[in-house]
Structures are given as structure tokens and as C-alpha cells.
């Protein structure tokens, strides 16, 4: 089966910003969280997939079709929720819905209605009069309605209230259960990443990581609480030290070997919280980049 999304040898420079991806393939039925600091290039990356920003070199294929080809039939296979609903402001949600339902052959009215109703989106109000949070909800409802096999979501929960966020997560899970969907989601919300993601993709100043399976990534980190204070010099695997005796390691086996050789006692140990790992990767992640 053709992968929903495949990117090869892609490069893009905008002024002093460079984005490059050697080889990335997103498989059917997976959710990938795209993680990076503000301005890291997440939205640019998404726009390139949608051919809204042209790459300098390389190929981007949606279900085997290059997005820069003359034919744009691939557009019916991917829904993209951008951070704004550009060009729609003078219209109502209902009017935009009518347009989308005509363009997208697999438009799913039930999906659109259930999401809109549950989140109480006012579909008869002019979009420019909606609050940012409600605009995002409408944007999502419209993209869910498109019922495409590939979904790209750019910070969907950024302005959302808690009940809506929870409903959104549940909605995405139900969507995944119904069929062969593939989702890319850029988010700064730890909850989205923990509850939804299978893979993490880090973007840092235009540098893009490999696809990292969430639990494998987590298991490469370990926090150790020691009984005695270790020497002040860096010990094997150590990437951070707090309270003099708490060591964060990204090579747990090397750390354990060193500690036992040096007769330093481990009082307790655990896999750190995903948020802490993301923090480490984004502030000094060197191992991640291919």
C-alpha cells in the first residue's frame, strides 16, 4: 500500500531559515505529534505538504502523488487545519460547509454535524465575529467533514477550553478506530501528545528529527536518585543533575554500569515524564537528529 505521506531530500530556504528533510514516511493508522518551539518551522513544514509553500528541492508525495504535479487530485485526500480560516471571514460556517461539501467527494455530514453540535459551534454567525477558540473549532469541524484519509492539524487545541479539548481527543480516537486514518498534529499541549501520539517528530530551527516512537524515546531516558553524591564531573549518560544526587541520563545502561562499578547506590529510578524529555530535546537535543 502507498504511504499516506512520503518526503524525500526536501530542502527549503527562506532568508536565513533552512528546513531540510532527508527521508520521512508516515504509515497508515498512525498519529504523529509534530513538536517544536514557536517559529521552529512546523507551519512551514505543513504548508509545504499542502503545496502552499514550494520546496527548493526534493519530493513530497501524498498517497504516491507528488504535490507539485500538474494534477492536484491528491488534494481530495488530505485535510489541513491551518491556524487561521483565511478568506472565510465574511461568510457563515454553514456557507463554508456548503462549499466544502461540494469540493470534497467523501464529505461526511454526520461527522461535521456531530462535532459542531457537541462543541456548540454557531454555524449561522459570520466567521469574523467568532472568538479565536470558536474559529478553531469550526475550522476543525470543516476538516473532519472532509473525511480524508490524511489529516494535518496545526495547533488544534491551542485556544480551546478543557471540555472541548477532551471531546476533541475522544473524537480523534473514534475517528482512528473507524478506519485507516493518518494524522499529523502540531501541538504544545502535553495532553495531546501523551494521549494521542504514537510518534514524535521534532522540528528545531528547521532541523527535522526522525520519526521517534513515543515509548522507545521515553525509555532511552531515566532519572536516578542516588544515596551518595557522585563526583562533580559528568558521569556516563548524565545530561542533567538536580539536588546534587538526582541524575537524568540518556544512556541508562551506561549510567547503571558506572554506578555499580563505583559502588554508588541507586535509591530509586524512573522513566521521566514525557514533558521533561521534550524539554530536554528542545533545549539541547543532539541525539535525535539524523
Amino acid at each position: 500500500m502507498t504511504a499516506p505521506l512520503r518526503i524525500k531530500n526536501m530542502e527549503k530556504s527562506i532568508d536565513d531559515f533552512h528546513l531540510n528533510i532527508k527521508d520521512l514516511t508516515f504509515e497508515t493508522g498512525t498519529i504523529t505529534a509534530v513538536v517544536g518551539m514557536n517559529g521552529a518551522g512546523k507551519s512551514t513544514f505543513f504548508k509545504m505538504i499542502m503545496n502552499l509553500v514550494k520546496q527548493d528541492t526534493g519530493t513530497i508525495e501524498v498517497f504516491g502523488q507528488s504535490v507539485t504535479d500538474q494534477s492536484d487530485s491528491w488534494k481530495g485526500l488530505v485535510a489541513y487545519q491551518s491556524q487561521t480560516l483565511t478568506g472565510c471571514e465574511p461568510f457563515t460556517g454553514e456557507q463554508v460547509r456548503n462549499l466544502m461539501a461540494k469540493i470534497y467527494p467523501d464529505w461526511d455530514e454526520a461527522l461535521f454535524r456531530s462535532f459542531s453540535q457537541k462543541l456548540q459551534i454557531p454555524l449561522n454567525k459570520q466567521i469574523q465575529k467568532l472568538s479565536p477558540g470558536v474559529k478553531t473549532k469550526l475550522n476543525l469541524a470543516l476538516n473532519f467533514g472532509k473525511n480524508t484519509p490524511l489529516l494535518i492539524l496545526d495547533e488544534p487545541t491551542a485556544a480551546m477550553d478543557i471540555p472541548s479539548k477532551n471531546y476533541f481527543i475522544q473524537f480523534l480516537l473514534d475517528l482512528m478506530e473507524r478506519g485507516d486514518k493518518t494524522i499529523l498534529i502540531a501541538s504544545h499541549q502535553a495532553d495531546d501528545i501523551k494521549k494521542l501520539a504514537d510518534y514524535l517528530l521534532f522540528i528545531d530551527k528547521g532541523q527535522v528529527s526522525n520519526l521517534l516512537e513515543k515509548d522507545s524515546l521515553a525509555s532511552t531516558y531515566r532519572l536516578f536518585w542516588l544515596k551518595e553524591e557522585p563526583p562533580i564531573t559528568l558521569i556516563p549518560g548524565e545530561i542533567k543533575r538536580t539536588y546534587k544526587r538526582v541524575i537524568l541520563s540518556n544512556q541508562p545502561e551506561a549510567t547503571v554500569a558506572y554506578l555499580s562499578k563505583s559502588s554508588l547506590t541507586i535509591v530509586d529510578e524512573e522513566i521521566p515524564d514525557l514533558e521533561e524529555i521534550i524539554q530536554e530535546v528542545l533545549t539541547k537535543g543532539e541525539i535525535i537528529y539524523a
Binding site: 498519529i31 481527543i169 480516537l173 482512528m176 501523551k194 494521549k195 504514537d198 516512537e213 513515543k214 515509548d215
Partner: peptide
């Protein structure tokens, strides 16, 4: 529970 639901509840990936 389905794979996705359990993954969400335990906050781990569906691959695991």
C-alpha cells in the same frame, strides 16, 4: 478496550 482507547488511558503509544 480497543488499542487506541487503552493507549490513551495509559498515555503510551498504540504501537506498544
Amino acid at each position: 478496550p480497543s488499542i487506541r482507547v487503552l493507549a490513551k488511558e495509559l498515555e503510551i503509544s498504540s504501537i506498544t
